[in-house]
Measured scan of single mutants.
Amino acid sequence: SADYSSLTVVQLKDLLTKRNLSVGGLKNEWVQRLIKDDEES
């Protein structure tokens, strides 16, 4: 899986927004959300 934890907050928020995922919570929660989205898609 991609190394989301190395991305900036701005990059992570951009990815979350593009995938229609929530940008609520902490940075590590966003990373988990993106990883989960990868596994489900």
Rank of each mutant, 00 (worst) to 15 (best):
V31K: 01
L12V: 02
K13W: 11
L26F: 14
T8K: 03
V31P: 02
K36A: 13
K13Q: 13
G24W: 07
V10E: 15
S1I: 14
L16H: 02
E29V: 04
D37F: 15
R19W: 03
D3R: 12
Q32W: 07
R33K: 05
L15P: 01
L12E: 00
V10R: 13
G24R: 12
K27V: 13
S1H: 12
E40G: 10
R33M: 07
Q32N: 12
D38K: 03
T8L: 03
K36W: 09
G25A: 01
R33P: 03
L21D: 05
K36E: 12
K36M: 11
D14C: 12
G25V: 03
V31Q: 02
L34S: 00
N28D: 14
W30N: 03
V23A: 08
D3I: 12
K18M: 10
V10F: 10
D38E: 07
T17D: 08
Y4A: 03
W30V: 03
L16T: 03
E39F: 11
D38A: 04
D14N: 10
K13A: 07
L16A: 01
S5Y: 14
K27G: 03
D14I: 08
L15A: 05
V23H: 14
S22L: 06
L12R: 00
K27R: 08
I35S: 06
L26K: 14
E40K: 14
V10P: 08
W30Y: 05
Y4G: 01
S6P: 00
L26C: 15
A2N: 12
S22G: 09
K36G: 05
G25H: 03
G25Y: 01
N20V: 03
V9F: 09
T8G: 06
K36V: 07
L7I: 02
Q11R: 03
T17M: 13
S22D: 10
V23R: 07
L15Q: 05
T8M: 02
L7D: 00
A2Q: 12
S6F: 07
D37H: 14
S1W: 14
S1T: 12
S22A: 08
S5R: 10
Q32E: 13
Q32S: 10
K36S: 08
K18L: 10
V23Y: 08
G25W: 04
S41N: 14
T17I: 14
D3M: 09
L21A: 02
S22V: 03
S41F: 09
G24C: 15
D14S: 08
R19L: 06
S41H: 15
L34K: 00
D3Q: 11
K27S: 06
K27C: 08
T17A: 11
W30A: 03
V31S: 01
T17F: 09
L15D: 01
Y4H: 00
K36R: 12
N20K: 11
D37A: 11
D3A: 10
S6C: 09
T8D: 10
E40T: 07
T8P: 04
L21Q: 01
L34Y: 02
A2Y: 15
G24L: 14
D38G: 02
I35H: 08
R19G: 06
E39I: 14
V31E: 04
K18R: 11
K27Y: 11
L16Q: 00
L26T: 15
Q32P: 04
A2C: 12
Q11E: 11
L12W: 01
R33V: 05
G24E: 15
K13L: 15
I35D: 05
S41D: 07
V10L: 13
S6Y: 07
R19C: 00
E39G: 08
V23G: 07
S5A: 14
V10T: 13
S22Y: 06
N28Y: 14
K13P: 00
S41Q: 14
S41C: 07
A2E: 11
D37N: 14
K27L: 12
E40M: 13
R33G: 04
D3N: 10
V10W: 12
K27M: 13
D14M: 10
Q32R: 07
I35K: 07
T8I: 02
D14A: 12
Q11F: 06
V9R: 08
I35Y: 08
T8E: 04
R19S: 03
Y4E: 00
K18F: 09
L12S: 01
L7C: 09
L12T: 01
V10S: 15
S6Q: 13
S22F: 06
S6I: 11
V23S: 11
V23E: 06
